[in-house]
Amino acid sequence: MKISLDGLHKAFESKVRLGVMSALAVNDRIDFSSLKELLEVTDGNLASHLKALEKVEFIGVEKSFIDRKPNTKYFMTVKGKKAFNDHLSALEKLIKSHK
């Protein structure tokens, strides 16, 4: 994934991915089902977006078992935090330049 001309990261073009990053920016760890509830998306949809973010190493995964049921938690990596902040600055700049 590349950064487009205006400084916006391609990874954040999707609403779901932007939502995931926003939620992870203010929470240490969030599990899959909570993310699903927050974003109101289907399992498959969310899983594919999470995989995409994992692939570019913007988020990390932590797998554990609660009552023998698998529980997957996600967190933001340092790289992801930087990319998200850069994206916010780029958005800010674009809005300012339009005015």
Binding site: G19, S22, A25, V26, L88
Partner: peptide
Amino acid sequence: MKKEQDYIRDIAEIRSMMERSSK
């Protein structure tokens, strides 16, 4: 190419998600 409205909507959504997920 996205329009200004889209950026503003993006920011509004980010803010709402940050708030909803933490408060």
